[in-house]
């Protein structure tokens, strides 16, 4: 069994991280351009061009940050858990690195969703915070992300840290459908979903278009951030490998 695992570790160490590092190095400038363009135009459109809401006035414009951040916070959790599962089953180091990199991004996006939600709640609901099912389950998501981050530091062995946080990430996946359906299952202060998977969205088209641009922007931004974090992790983990040493000496000789 040990020899079997060793053989594959050796195979993946030689192959994947280097390929990932080189391919993302080529794509990153373009992805960064696309993310900046989408986010800048989406923000301009949503904050200044889109009409105000009939009831909420201009405070509704916070939706252009709140909803995309919340969507990517949930999607990002599935990405993290899936990468962790692949790492656990196939022991692919590269997969664990992606999982580890997804944690700080997810935590930051969850924080944005919670913060903008609080700031939006004051003018629309009359309170910054309530302990309803949606908001509380979103706070649990933040703690799950922070838990995965903390577990990474709790082990001296990188391999153990990877496995432990992958298991925590897997256990936490049950929270995602709970967050998503909380507004339908229980009475909450938070309103039900505006963007629906199966039926028409209950937002006017003039307000929907910039929201879609922002969501696309957040998706591309997520990919950029995930690549950046993973590339840093690759260099740390692969610091003694021949290709990283070659990369560094090539850079310094230029």
């Amino acid at each position: 069994m040990v020899t079997e695992v060793k053989k594959w570790q050796w195979f993946y160490r030689l192959g994947s991280p280097r390929w990932f590092y080189e391919i993302t190095g080529r794509w990153l400038p373009w992805l960064l351009c696309a993310a900046s363009l989408l986010l800048a135009s989406g923000l301009f459109w949503g904050l200044l061009v889109a009409p105000p809401d009939a009831r909420q006035g201009n405070s509704f414009r916070i939706i252009y940050l709140h909803v995309p951040a919340a969507i990517l916070a949930l999607v990002g959790y599935y990405i993290m858990a899936l990468a962790g599962a692949v790492g656990l089953i196939w022991r692919i180091k590269m997969s664990f690195m992606v999982m580890k990199s997804a944690a700080p991004i997810g935590a930051a996006l969850t924080f944005i969703a919670l913060f903008t939600g609080a700031v939006w709640g004051k003018p629309s609901w009359g309170t910054y915070w309530v302990w309803d099912a949606r908001i509380t389950s979103m706070l649990i998501l933040l703690f799950l992300y922070l838990g995965v981050l903390a577990l990474q530091r709790a082990f001296s062995s990188a391999e153990m840290a990877y496995r432990a946080s992958a298991i925590l990430a897997l256990v936490g996946t049950i929270n995602i459908p709970i967050i998503y359906k909380s507004v339908d299952w229980w009475h909450t202060l938070h309103q039900p979903a505006t963007l629906k998977l199966t039926s028409a969205s209950s937002i006017h088209i003039d307000m929907l278009q910039p929201l879609i641009v922002m969501i696309c922007g957040f998706y591309v931004f997520y990919v950029v951030a995930l690549c950046l974090f993973t590339r840093a992790e690759i260099i740390r983990r692969e610091a003694t490998s021949a290709w990283v040493r070659a990369l560094v000496s090539n850079e310094s000789s230029r």
Binding site: L43, G57, N58, I62, L65, H66, F115, V119, W120, P123
Partner: peptide
């Protein structure tokens, strides 16, 4: 009248 809320949310995000 909602400037403070909107711009704080934008700046922090």
């Amino acid at each position: 009248g909602h400037g403070l809320y909107v711009w704080v949310a934008v700046t922090v995000s």
